[in-house]
Each structure stands twice: as structure tokens, then as C-alpha cells.
Amino acid sequence: MSVNPRVVHKRRATITALPLYYSGHLLKKHTEDKDFKSYYGELRGATLFLYTDDTQDTYTEKLDLEQLKSMELNSPYQRKTPTIFTLTLLSEEVQLKMDNPDTGEEWRGYILTVVKKQIPSKLQLLPGQMLLLKEALDQERRRNPPVLRPPLPPRPAFLRPASPCPSPVPAKDKPDNSILDMPSCFLDVSREEAERMLCANPEYGSIILRPSTMANNYALTLRQQTSRGHVMKNYRVSSSNSGFVIELETALTVSTLNDVLKYFLEKTEYRLQPYMASQPYDTRIELSPAPKNISITSPALKTVPKAQVAPMLRSQTKEESLPPPTKPAEGEYVVPDDHRPDEHKLKLDQLDSELRQVLRLRRESIQTASGEDEMYENQPTEKALSCTAQWTKSEAV
């Protein structure tokens, strides 16, 4: 009794847990095999599941297309001839054969789209088929967004061709992500140099990440202790669209090169450590030389002009330094201060000057009023003022 195709489809979706993009009959074989074997294939995500027929709910084989390096058409596209594709993976090389060339073109379009996350530029498909292919691409991008990976480092000098193409100079304002995301044990050395460094300085570490001789690939060199002694091992790390693939017996894909290093550290139980050359330290403190004397030809120092301040009266300074005068008792005779004669003399001179000015003004006014009475009036007035001045001086003394 045949099983309902809807039930089979639901079981396959449960087992794989991946969305179905394309399915159909095809033939598959390894390059060393002679004959093709018939399968029913389902492209779910970036994995091709192969079943013996369309009623089987458990797959027989699967191909991880994330490890796909190339997909080549063995013969030109022709309407009446079968289409054979050669898929080169990291660990194997297989061939897929489709009897219908139009179906083969659809398989090629879907496989390259889910692997490269973009629709190939040259496809001989109808508009409706292209629309379905675009929907599959959008779904795959939502399910598995592209991983931001550090750019590959520049190729070592010994791996560059004789006439390399000039590479664009990076902008100065952009940070170098290759330096920021690269493990500290990455060194631009060859396999021989890495092995020599690990042997010469085992105290620095035992793992070196380096460029591979193959383009867009890396290699991991480590020095490991075994029962036979220390041995050198080299592992290849390939760059793919989904990350970095560690090419072991069972290939492993990780997101970054730091994850590659972390995987090896965990697998060796942290008995191996990344190679980091120690930086030298100074052990002596040297005294800096004394500064040299200023030469004669050195520019002369600027002379700042002194501020000009108005002179202060001596009497004001003395008044500030003297204590406040004490109030004399009633009926007591006050003797003038002998130590302040200059102050009284100044006041007397000022008073004398004022009196003389008053006399001069008075004389001028009298001469203007009456020329005859000028001598008569001036003489007693001047005599009276002179007597007043003399009396004032005697009182002050």
C-alpha cells in the first residue's frame, strides 16, 4: 500500500527541519564510479537529500552544498541531450545527470542560488520559473543571513605572481577589519617557517595560523606532543560563503577564524596554546643628559616695562601707620605734636598762598573802581591781612 505523498512530505520536513526549494528525479555517481544511480532529490536549504524513490521518508544520502567549490557543465546546453554537472566539494567530487535539459537548468539555478545567495546571471528559464527562484532566494536569506567575515589578508610575497595586479589602496578613515578580527597567532609565514618557529621557541606557543598556498584559504600548523615525541601537523581551513570550513574527516564549518582557533583549543583540552612571541623588556634605567647652557647667539629675553605709579604723599603714609589720636581730657592743655611739623608748615604755606591770592584779586577790583583811592585802601588792607597771617602762624606754633 502506497503512502500518501502529503504524509511523506510532512515526515521529510520533520526529519530535515529545512524548507523545500526544489525536487525531482535525477541520477548521481562519484567520479570514480562507472554507472549512475537513480534517486529522487530534494533541495532543502543548502543540502541536497537523496531518496531511493519519492515514497521514502528517510533519505539515503545527502550532499552539503555549503562545501561546493565549483559546478561545471560537462557539455554545452542542448535540448535533446542529457545534462551532466560535475560538483566539486571539499571532500569529494560527484556528478549529477538529468535526462531533461530544462530540468537540469532549473537544478543548476536553484543550487547556485542557495549556495552563492544570489541568482546566476545567465539562466535559460521562463519568467514564472525566475519568480519562483527569487522567492526561494528571499526565503534562504531570511533563514540563513550572510555572515560578516573578516576580509582575507594580503597574500605573502612568496605566493604572489611575478607581475601582480595593483590592489586598491584602502581608505585611511576606514578601520582595517582584517587586523581587528584576525587571531593573534596569525603570521604571514610559509609552512617551513611556521614549523621552524614552533621548534625553535616552544615556550611561545604551539599553534600558528597562516595563509595557505591555495587562494582564499588558510592553514593551521601546530606542534603536538605524542607518544613518539613532538610531531608537526598542518590542517587546511577553506573559505566558503557561510564561513570557514575545517577540512577534517568530518568537515566542520564555523563563522570566523577565531572560532577555528577555539575549536582546536577545545579539542586538545587547551594543552596547545596560540603562538605569541614575547616582547623584550628593558632592565636598565639610564640618566637623561643634562640640558645644555644657553648659547650667546640665543635670542635675548624680553624685558617687561615697569608699571608707572603716581607717587604717594609722605603725610598719607604716616597717617596710615600712626595710631588714632586720643581725646584729651577737659581743661587739659594740649601740646602740639612735635613730630609733625611738616604737616602744619604745609598748611600754613597753603593758607598764606590763599591770602595772597585774595589780596591780589581785591587790589585789582579796587584799582578798577577808583584809581585815586587805590593806595589809600590797599595799604591798610594789606597791613591788616599781613597781621592776620602773622597771628595765625603764632597760634599754630
Rank of each mutant, 00 (worst) to 15 (best):
S190E: 05
P183F: 04
K267I: 06
P380S: 00
K383L: 12
S239F: 12
P323Q: 13
P289H: 06
T221M: 04
W107Y: 09
C185F: 01
T381A: 13
T250A: 09
S2L: 05
P5N: 03
H339E: 08
S365C: 10
A215G: 09
L18R: 12
T256H: 15
H344E: 00
L152M: 15
A290E: 11
P175Y: 09
P19T: 03
Q225T: 11
A307H: 07
H344N: 02
L125W: 00
E319Q: 10
V169R: 11
V189I: 08
P305I: 03
M71K: 11
K117V: 07
Q350I: 02
L180P: 01
A384G: 06
V169H: 06
E192R: 03
T88R: 14
D173H: 14
M182I: 07
L248G: 10
K327E: 14
K10G: 06
M276A: 13
T317F: 12
S227G: 14
P5Q: 06
V309F: 08
R12E: 02
K69M: 06
T113W: 02
L348K: 02
G109Q: 01
P168N: 11
G41W: 01
S370T: 01
D259I: 03
S278N: 11
V397W: 11
K29R: 15
P305L: 06
S75T: 05
N100D: 15
D138S: 15
R149S: 08
S321A: 03
P82N: 12
I111W: 04
A194D: 00
L50A: 04
T58S: 08
Y235N: 14
S394F: 14
L355W: 00
T221H: 01
Y376L: 13
T253N: 06
S227I: 14
N217S: 15
E105S: 14
H25I: 08
P82Y: 05
